[in-house]
């Protein structure tokens, strides 16, 4: 319950303390502002964020599903060690990688591009996807797959036609997690992007907040818009999250 109140306070703040005339002008500013305006930057950032998040989620999901299947269904040497290494990357603070990554991205010409950001964000997101999905895949009874394979389906075929449909909650949970992670990522975006060509929303908003420190209305308007896409994703997928995790990650 407490989590609801501050949100409402945020929305009512500009109404209560700043005259009404400001209200929608901020949104207008963001949507209609011409070149070089706050609005232009914001719209560009929104687009970049969307590209980065969608790109990251799609790559991570494809790659993650394949990997998670291997972890869940196949027996091979160093299986545990490999999974462990994947998960351990999560403990690395991003600062530890910044400068060398900057150099790599630069030599590939990927600095200040959404492609570059997608690349580094995938490295953050994939371990998560592997973890959620491999746990979920394990809860799907082997018999389903066995039956399909007796009918002559290959392993990959079974993965697509049997395991994936059965793992829908887990997959939705993974999509939601990775989308939120990618949308929220700040440090890489701060260092690796600088212009409207690739700057994502968190970076743009931190600049807003710096320039208009006391114009909370504008920050709030921008913030609400920035929060909308992840909110929509979260509200659509939230019910799968519980079942996705209940069956998978938590119970094992």
């Amino acid at each position: 319950m407490a989590s609801v109140t501050p949100q409402r306070v945020l929305i009512t703040t500009p109404l209560r303390w700043i005259p009404d005339t400001f209200d929608f002008s901020r949104y207008g500013q963001i949507f209609n502002g011409g070149a070089d305006s706050v609005g232009a930057t914001f719209r560009a950032a929104m687009m970049n964020s969307a590209v980065v998040a969608v790109g990251t989620v799609s790559i991570s999901m494809v790659v993650g599903i394949l990997g998670a299947y291997a972890f869940a269904r196949l027996r091979f040497r160093f299986r545990r060690a490999t999974l462990m290494i994947f998960l351990a990357t999560y403990m690395l603070p991003q600062i530890a990688l910044l400068i060398p990554l900057y150099l790599i991205l630069n030599s590939l010409g990927l600095l200040d591009t959404t492609t570059g950001l997608i690349l580094v964000d995938c490295a953050l997101v994939i371990p998560f996807v592997l973890w959620i999905l491999s746990n979920y895949f394990m809860t799907i009874p082997d018999e389903l797959e066995e039956a399909a394979r007796i009918d002559g389906t290959t392993r990959l075929g079974a993965l697509f036609w049997v395991v994936l449909p059965a793992a829908r909650p887990g997959i939705f949970a993974a999509i939601m997690f990775s989308f939120l992670l990618a949308w929220d990522e700040f440090m890489y975006a701060l260092i690796f992007t600088s212009s409207d060509a690739a700057k994502t929303l968190p970076v743009a908003i931190s600049e807003f907040a710096g320039r208009y420190t006391t114009d909370f209305g504008l920050v709030a308007a921008g913030g609400i818009l920035a929060a909308l896409p992840p909110l929509i994703v979260a509200i659509i997928f939230q019910r799968y999250v519980v079942s996705g995790m209940a069956a998978g990650a938590v119970k094992g």
Partner: peptide, 25 residues
């Protein structure tokens, strides 16, 4: 109720920070 609870989590950290900075102003 679940949809409402998920809101704070979905708000990007930077927006969240700016919002609280405003609240604490």
């Amino acid at each position: 109720f679940r949809a409402v609870v998920v809101i704070p989590w979905a708000i990007p950290t930077i927006v969240n920070a700016a919002m609280w900075k405003g609240i604490f102003s």
